[in-house]
Write a protein that binds this DNA or RNA. Structure first.
Length: 591
RNA sequence: GGCCCCGUAGCUCAGUUGGAUAGAGCAACAGCCUUCUAAGCUGUGGGCCACUGGUUCGAAUCCAGUCGGGGUCACCA
């Protein structure tokens, strides 16, 4: 890489000129800002103590040294203490030539692969996926792609929460008021059907509580004595006791829900290598905990409940088994983590889970370490912020949840309306047009979500998100389509650039962006942030668009220049496509 | 109250390991369709980077504190 050669040369220069030995991190190599001439910039302030000269002189001396020792550096200039290096045109031209056909440009190719497991989505089987899941799914899937690009062996897993009282609520409501309704008879997606009965349960439950309270009962007492709730709890006990009728109902309804989830996942373009079910893993958590008790690492209290004492780590005691012996959330997670480690021995386990569970994951790691599982250090919680709505927060109880399927429908319809309005699809066959709305709608949605730094809470404005102008996925898709159309019309074979082309300023900005693409993927992989790639893709597309508006490639007088621009365009299209691919966003050939 | 995260233009967001005069998009205003696709491009206006101190050649970025917003501290998941 050019960057490392430059750094190395700076190191040599400083050592030979000022007898100062630098480490890699003392050298700040950065892109030269647009308003100055040059390609790379080095701040020489850290070396002035050793040089005992002014920053300007120091920079000039180092610049002179580099110019004499590196053939890629043709010239330099100094502004204050900033040394701007200019890279030869032939280097950039070679770079373009070498990578223009390289479909996996920027991707790491390694023989020995590190196994990374990543969990995302993690739905409950009592209701459909919502906006929060969308952020989760997109992040998880995209990060998996980025890690693959970095040469990791990635295992994508889902953990389905298919047991517990909330599941029983749906089941009970269906039993009581469902009249045998199925996805086939009702035309409802399975997950929506289950969700409908979950909501129904809560409605009846609230009515019951209200009625008991008007009869003079305290709210807390009413909640505990609610016949519905007691019935749901009874159902859970039967489930754990493997009651056949209940198990059958559970399996039937779950099958409906999974079919619904699969549809949504397919539409979003995400998938998994393996799915874990809590109903199948929660018991292993219990055995880990029991083992911890017998080894004296956990405490069993007089009422038989089991606790982890984390006071030495500055935290509280944490419950692991209830006094009746049943497991809690933490117990299940301990079990699942253990199981996964046995099965795959991953070097890293990434959990994509909302930031409201930051504390939970701190505790999870601490407990695992306390129990002697040193692999717990490999657990990384990829925490993401809440998705808020302009009107206020999303709360399922208040009925302001944005359903994932509904949202995708709405996006698609808007894409259709907009395309129709602009007359974009007049020459498209109906099937091609239909696919195009889907691609654009998903592109808009995915990009809108992924461009924001995962850690931050974000505002999802449905009206703004379906505006296809500006900093959006469709803009990038559009840029790609334009380039493709341009190349198609040029129709000539694109040959390597041989001539010494005078590289224009605007074009060089694009080449430099392309040049840094591998670094972007790497940093995004380390930070687990698709946002870096999203924002990069936009920058590249925007830069190209500005350039595109002014050029006339098709009838360029100078054949060399024409070919150079076609090569640049082709390479740009490739890179946009591959960057968007890491986000799970398709780029159409025309739109 | 303890701990964690966030605070950058009117709004939504970028800002790579601390670097030069703080960057986009939306919204507002002014231009640009005889070319390849105007879902676009060009330009103008808009900032106490929450505040105060510290670290140093240099701070939106690191540290401490203050103020604001959110989350979390369950025999819920």
């Amino acid at each position: 890489m050019l960057e490392s050669k430059l750094s190395q040369c700076v190191k040599e220069a400083v050592q030979s000129l000022y007898d100062l030995l630098l480490s890699e991190k003392d050298i700040t190599l950065q892109k030269t800002r647009k308003e100055f001439t040059g390609d790379f910039t080095i701040a020489v302030f850290p070396f002035v103590r050793a040089s005992k000269k002014s920053p300007e002189t120091t920079a000039s001396e180092i610049g002179e040294y580099i110019k004499n020792h590196l053939k890629e550096v043709t010239d330099f200039n100094v502004i204050k203490g900033f040394l701007n290096l200019e890279i030869s045109k032939s280097y950039w031209l070679n770079f373009l030539n070498n990578h223009q056909q390289d479909v996996s440009f920027g991707f790491t190719k390694t023989e020995e692969k590190e196994v990374v497991m990543i969990e995302y989505s993690s739905p409950n089987t009592n209701k459909p996926l919502h906006l929060g899941h969308i952020r989760n799914n997109l992040l998880g899937w995209s990060v998996a792609q980025i890690l693959k690009a970095n040469g990791k062996n990635v295992v994508k897993v889902n953990l389905v929460n298919d047991r517990g009282i909330h599941i029983c609520k749906s089941m009970l409501a269906w039993q009581k008021w469902g009249n045998g309704e199925t996805p086939t008879t009702s035309g409802l997606k399975g997950d929506h059907l289950a969700g409908k009965y979950y909501v129904l349960f809560n409605q009846h439950y609230l009515e019951e509580i209200a009625e008991m309270m008007t009869n003079g009962m305290e709210k807390e007492v009413a909640e505990k004595q609610s016949a519905l709730m007691l019935e749901a709890q009874e159902m859970l006990r039967k489930w754990e006791a493997k009651d056949e009728t209940i198990l059958h109902l559970w399996e039937t309804m779950n099958a409906w829900v999974y079919e619904g989830f699969d549809q949504t996942y397919r539409r979003m373009g995400i998938d998994f290598d393996k799915t874990y079910y809590e109903s199948a893993t929660y018991l292993s958590g219990k055995s880990i905990v029991e083992k911890g008790v017998s080894e004296g690492k956990l405490i069993r209290k007089a009422d038989q409940s089991v606790w982890a004492d984390l006071t030495a780590e500055g935290l509280d005691q944490k419950l692991l088994l209830r006094s009746d012996g049943t497991s809690v959330y933490m117990t299940q997670d301990l079990g699942t983590a253990h199981l996964r480690n046995e099965e795959y021995q991953p070097q890293q386990m990434i959990y994509v889970v909302g930031n409201e569970q930051n504390y939970h994951f701190d505790v999870l790691k601490l407990i695992l370490l306390k129990l002697g599982y040193n692999w717990a250090d490999s657990i990384h919680h990829l925490s993401y912020g809440m998705v808020e709505l302009p009107a206020g927060k999303m709360k399922s109880r208040e009925g302001t949840v944005v359903d994932a399927d509904d949202l995708m429908d709405e996006m698609e319809k808007t894409a259709y309306d907009k395309a129709l309005e602009l007359g974009k699809i007049d020459d498209f066959e109906s099937e091609e047009a239909r696919q195009l709305y889907a691609v654009i709608a998903m592109g808009a949605l995915k990009y809108f979500i992924l461009k924001v730094d995962p850690q931050k809470n974000m505002l999802f404005n449905p009206t703004e998100s379906i505006d296809f102008n500006g900093h959006t996925g469709p803009f990038i898709q559009y840029t790609h389509a334009r380039i493709k159309s341009l190349i198609k019309k040029a129709s000539d074979d694109i040959s390597p650039i041989v001539a010494n082309i005078d590289v224009l300023t605007k074009e060089k900005d694009i080449i430099r962006l392309l040049h840094e693409y591998p670094a972007i993927i790497k940093v995004a992989g380390e930070n687990r942030s698709p946002a870096l790639i999203a924002n990069y893709a936009f920058e590249l597309a925007k830069e190209y668009n500005g350039f595109y508006q002014e050029i006339t490639i098709l009838k360029e007088e100078n054949d060399d220049l024409r070919n150079f621009r076609l090569v640049l365009s082709a390479f740009t299209a490739n890179t946009i496509k591959s960057a968007m691919g890491l986000l799970g966003i398709e780029v159409p050939e025309r739109m």
